[in-house]
């Protein structure tokens, strides 16, 4: 079930070596600036920025496509709804179906924002191993309890994926039809069992962790001082984000 969730192997490119906290801040600035882009004239700049960031990461493009597929379904729905039903200015008429300007424009800008945001987010996550990312978020102020929960959940998701898949297989071998709505009960039993097993496992895990000093003190993550190069990357990102965000103000 997790086959489609496989993370790309972190690459050894410059983006993978970028000091994580600076990378996190820089790329997040970009992502949020993208989310705020409304002016059609800025769309090419945004898409180009996302493209350049992706090229710098050296990730294969097939990987990006695979990441865009699932949420893209929502986009397809909007592609039908917006251009045909939203707005008054008709730019083309095919029998009873009219293509409207306002709807088309808002669809194009939604699609562009969507693709750009996911592209940059993909770079952030695919070039940063999960534990490193969480440590960086912790040092930027994420509450320790949330960081711990993130790492733990991440650690056990893979185990639970296998447990769940084996339990479903075992039920299927005893004749359960898991492809129907009637299987809600069997699935609920399986999930109930997993909750109980996990609850017990958590008690053992906690005991084992306490024995090894969990909670005694907060481990400090090793920090290496950012190089000039790291800072330059951050400055570039923040500057670009600022341009995108302030463009409407500057032009008016």
């Amino acid at each position: 079930m997790l086959a489609r969730a496989t993370l790309a192997a972190p690459t050894a490119t410059s983006l993978a070596r970028w000091e994580v906290r600076l990378k996190l801040i820089g790329l997040l600035c970009l992502v949020f600036a993208f989310a705020g882009v409304n002016d059609v004239r800025l769309l090419p700049v945004m898409l180009a920025t996302a493209f350049v960031v992706y090229r710098l990461s050296s990730l294969p493009f097939r990987y990006l496509i695979s990441r865009l597929k699932v949420p893209g379904i929502f986009l397809v729905a909007l592609a039908v709804v917006l251009p045909l039903f939203s707005g008054e200015t008709v730019i083309a008429q095919f029998g009873p179906v009219a293509l409207r300007l306002e709807g088309t424009v808002s669809f194009v800008s939604i699609a562009a924002r969507f693709v750009s945001i996911i592209t940059v987010a993909t770079v952030l996550f695919a070039t940063t191993p999960m534990p490193t990312l969480v440590r960086a978020m912790n040092s930027l102020g994420l509450p320790p309890l949330l960081g711990d929960m993130l790492l733990f959940t991440y650690r056990y998701i893979f185990q639970l994926a296998e447990d769940l898949s084996r339990a479903r297989t075992a039920a299927r071998l005893r004749g359960a039809d898991l492809g129907s709505v009637r299987s809600v009960k069997t699935t609920a039993y399986i999930i109930g069992s997993l909750l109980i097993r996990s609850n017990w496992q958590a008690e053992r895990v906690l005991a084992a962790m306490t024995l090894r000093g969990y909670g005694a003190s907060r481990a400090r993550s090793p920090r290496h001082a950012p190089q000039a190069w790291d800072v330059a990357g951050l400055v570039a990102c923040v500057a670009l984000a600022a341009v995108l965000a302030l463009f409407p103000v500057l032009v008016l």
């Binding site: 075992a170 039920a171 005893r174 039993y189």
Partner: peptide, 16 residues
């Protein structure tokens, strides 16, 4: 007609 008992019985025992 094919029955299998899993290595980890936990995977198989799901009812209350």
């Amino acid at each position: 007609e094919i029955g299998m008992v899993f290595h980890h019985t936990n995977d198989q025992l799901i009812c209350p």
